[in-house]
């Protein structure tokens, strides 16, 4: 890890987070300071504990927690786990473009800037493809 990079934590149903992270690795090569947790595998308390462990180690510059679905259990769990902790933002609707942008910008943007950027990027990437 480095002190200047923002940390990412992806919390999803099933193996979606692990697979997203693995796929990002296939595209950009090595990924650092980014973790995936499955709420299906771990149980709620374990997910919260794992988030806190990662924050304790890595929260120097800020952390973005990505969840798969607004209104899902992962989102509620992450809000509950991080509420009141400085330097943490929870974003719902994670997708591949968001994560690809995160790993390329995590060392050069601040927390608020990267969050705005990622949400814009995520929305922009959902579109009808017409040629």
């Amino acid at each position: 890890m480095t002190d200047k990079d923002i940390t990412g934590i992806i919390v999803t149903h099933g193996q979606l987070g692990e697979e997203l992270l693995r796929t990002v690795g296939l595209i950009v090569g090595e990924v650092h300071d980014c973790y995936a947790l499955s709420s299906s595998d771990l149980g709620d308390e374990k997910v919260v504990r794992s988030i806190h462990e990662i924050l304790d180690r890595n929260n120097a510059k800020g952390t973005v927690v990505f969840v798969d679905y607004f209104g899902g259990s992962c989102g509620a769990l992450c809000v509950r786990a991080t509420r009141g902790i400085e330097g943490v933002k929870v974003i719902s609707g994670v997708n591949l473009p968001i994560l690809l942008d995160f790993v390329t910008k995590q060392g050069i943007m601040g927390l608020d800037e990267i969050v705005d950027h990622l949400i814009h990027r995520g929305r922009e990437s959902v579109r009808v493809i017409e040629l």
């Binding site: 149903h13 709620d44 679905y69 209104g71 899902g72 259990s73 509620a76 769990l77």
Partner: peptide, 11 residues
């Protein structure tokens, strides 16, 4: 349901 209102319930 200890997760209350979530995707399994809604969807």
């Amino acid at each position: 349901d200890d997760r209350f209102i979530h995707a399994q319930v809604v969807v």
